[in-house]
Design a protein around this nucleic acid. Structure first.
Length: 605
RNA sequence: GGGCCGGUAGCUCAGCUGGUCAGAGCAGGGGACUCAUAAUCCCUGGGUCGCGGGUUCGAGCCCCGCCCGGCCUACCA
């Protein structure tokens, strides 16, 4: 871990059809930020990118319902989502969006590269079209009677009653879920990505990841290889990236499939970042260097896109599938080092559902509780390796017992004792064996916690960090410095010095998880400058907005390189003046559990 | 229907490639202390590890079947 690594932190792109809820950010947001902050503290070069995913049918449908353009709807939620992610303290180097001129260009370049290498072909299929709009009606938007069991509410892709997979053409009395009209089934030509051409090389690649990736992700991905089918990557829809092929780009109603363009975002955002940073070639250090690493963070429903389709697209662009070929004009691009997938968060025993209003939006949450409280809960009790349940009772308990009582109180009791009795960080006198033992244990925690985070075992990392907090509390209780005030003031000063060093170390260990409160502790102990930099919103312009949308849009970025934070025990400086501290975290009244449950019941109806 | 993942103490969850693996935190009970947001520290738990078979000297951890929950199965992380 001594040499500096280049680490691309690729974070799943939230879909801009509404505000995001705490389940979303527990899947991709908070874990990726813990990872990125830790890597930066370790001296590695991190590039953390993401943005809002704004194309596709769901946004178009929602926009139609509201009587606004898709672009305008996307503008709205892009901004809301960006604001929420900043409020959570997620340290993106660039959080952008898929509706930028740069993104369009990079997506088209990937398509062209794949096309030139022979991995994209056209095929005529029978698809459902909405007669009134001429747009593709996705299978799931077609309803009708199941030809097998006669169930009336069957969807075009599957019957929820008998579980059989269906073809929308076979539905009896088909109708559009959007407006009830009868869909037309017409021949339509589409571009297909030749996934079977990558079966072998994907298999080799995936098998090389054994032992590194979380086993469930690997197993799932390998299994998919048994039956790879060509996949349509275009749609009859006007809301998307135009297809860069003569005769197609002119057609207003043919666009690239939203998933094809969304995954390219990891690359296009890196390129946009480089352009904005003033060195347009800088992205290559993360995408093309032999030793560069890339970690992709997402929820489990996205594994197929990140462990199968996106790698296949990259391989095809590089000319590495069964049909060979040569790298496109960008040059050869790196495949993911690791695909880190989270499981799902449920909500008081139920599945999160925006439509059924079983949901807690990030924004609503942060209006009442702190970002660090949410971050703490997500890492400590979130769905890292299996589904977990969010309950308000558990949230309040974690907040009060662990954040406030254990960590917040440790900061408070140690600093206030030193402030009152000495007014500054005291010198240490001669250290006892016990003093040395706790200090050594605290130093040793850096490798342990860091090792966990580096392997994406965030829950274990946080547990170890909190163990040092418990150790420090125990040390103070055992040494009882308050009792030494009269009997042995010199020893009291030493104990307080040791205690403050432990607090300072714990603050550092907790920084990736709780950046905002760690910054406060840093300041309380007399630190100057910025400890761990926080993200900010910046308004930027793009040529593509046009008259329809806003021509400026918010991006998330930050000056993380200016942070003082380093992943090691940093000796505190005796003599630094100390003020009596103010509480780090707000304690929550147990009544908030009932209040929140009532709020939920009321919303869900 | 197919694939994958889970079902461990009252609650929320840890348990890597089989042999101190039957655990942690909280809740409950007892004690110490008073610096601190009545916080902290110590002691205290015996749960058929979803159910039924099987492999093995030995299985939460491997195999088979079943039950329950989740996700994916061409557009909600």
């Amino acid at each position: 871990m001594s040499s500096k690594r280049h680490i691309l932190t690729a974070v799943a792109w939230p879909y801009a059809n509404g505000p995001r809820h705490i389940g979303h950010v527990s899947g991709f947001g908070v874990p990726s930020d813990v990872f990125a902050r830790f890597q930066r503290m370790s001296g590695n070069h991190v590039l953390m990118v993401s943005g809002t995913d704004e194309h596709g049918t769901p946004i178009q449908v929602l926009a139609d319902q509201e009587g606004v353009t898709a672009r305008r709807l996307a503008d709205r939620y892009n901004r809301i989502i960006a604001e929420d992610l900043v409020a959570l303290g997620l340290s993106y180097d660039l959080f952008t969006r898929t509706t930028t001129a740069n993104h369009y260009a990079v997506v088209q370049e990937l398509f062209t590269g794949l096309y030139n290498n022979g991995y994209i072909f056209t095929k005529t299929t029978k698809g459902a079209i909405s007669p009134s709009t001429g747009r593709t009606l996705p299978d799931r938007y077609v309803e009708g009677t199941c030809p097998i069991c006669g169930y009336d509410g069957a969807r075009g892709d599957q019957c929820d009653n008998c579980g059989n997979q269906l073809d929308p053409v076979d539905l009896i009395d088909p109708r559009s879920k959007i407006n009830g009209e009868t869909p037309e089934f017409v021949d339509t030509e589409h571009f297909m990505l030749d996934l079977p051409a990558f079966t072998e090389i994907l298999g080799t690649w995936l098998k090389s990841k054994a032992g590194q990736w979380r086993p469930n992700v690997l197993k799932f991905s390998l299994n998919l290889l048994d039956d790879l089918q060509p996949r349509a990557i275009s749609r009859d829809l006007d809301w998307g990236v135009p297809i860069p092929i003569e005769g197609w780009s002119e057609q207003a109603n043919k666009r690239l499939y939203v998933w094809f363009d969304a995954v390219v975002g990891y690359l296009s955002a890196a390129i946009e970042w480089a352009q904005r940073s003033g060195d347009p070639e800088a992205w290559r250090r993360w995408w093309q260097a032999e030793d560069a690493e890339s970690y992709y963070f997402m929820g489990k429903d996205n594994i197929v896109f990140h462990a199968e389709i996106w790698p296949a697209m990259l391989l095809g662009y590089n000319g590495k599938g069964d049909r060979g070929g040569r790298p496109g004009t960008l040059g050869e691009l790196n495949l993911p080092t690791e695909v880190v997938s989270s499981e799902f968060l449920t909500m008081e025993g139920r599945k999160f559902s925006s439509s059924r209003r079983v949901v807690i939006y990030v924004r609503d949450f942060l209006q009442r509780y702190s970002a660090d409280a949410l971050r703490y809960y997500i890492i400590a009790a979130g769905p890292e390796t299996q589904d977990t349940d969010f309950t308000w009772a558990e949230f309040v308990r974690r907040n009060n017992d662990e954040l406030v009582a254990a960590w917040g109180n440790l900061v408070n009791r140690s600093i206030s004792m030193a402030a009152k009795n000495i007014g500054a960080i005291p010198e240490a006198g001669e250290l006892t064996d016990e003093d040395r033992r706790v200090l050594d244990a605290s130093k040793a925690a850096f490798d342990v916690v860091g090792g966990h985070i580096d392997r994406s075992r965030f829950k274990a990392g946080l547990q170890e960090a909190m163990r040092t907090v418990a150790e420090a509390n125990k040390y103070i209780s055992d040494q009882a410095p308050w009792a030494l005030k009269k009997t042995d003031p010199e020893r009291m000063r030493t104990v307080l010095h040791v205690a403050l060093q432990l607090v300072d170390d714990a603050k550092t260990l907790l920084t990736p998880f709780l950046p905002a409160s760690s910054n406060k502790v840093y300041a309380m102990l007399g630190g100057t400058g910025v400890w761990s930099a926080m993200p900010r919103l910046e308004e930027v312009t793009d040529s593509i907005g046009g008259e329809e949308g806003t021509s400026t849009y918010p991006v998330i970025t930050g000056d993380y390189a200016d942070s003082e934070a380093r992943w090691e025990s940093i000796p505190i400086r005796p003599g630094t003046p100390l003020e009596p501290p103010t509480p780090l975290f707000a304690k929550l009244d147990p009544s908030v559990v009932d209040e929140e449950l009532a709020r939920l019941e009321e919303a869900a109806g």
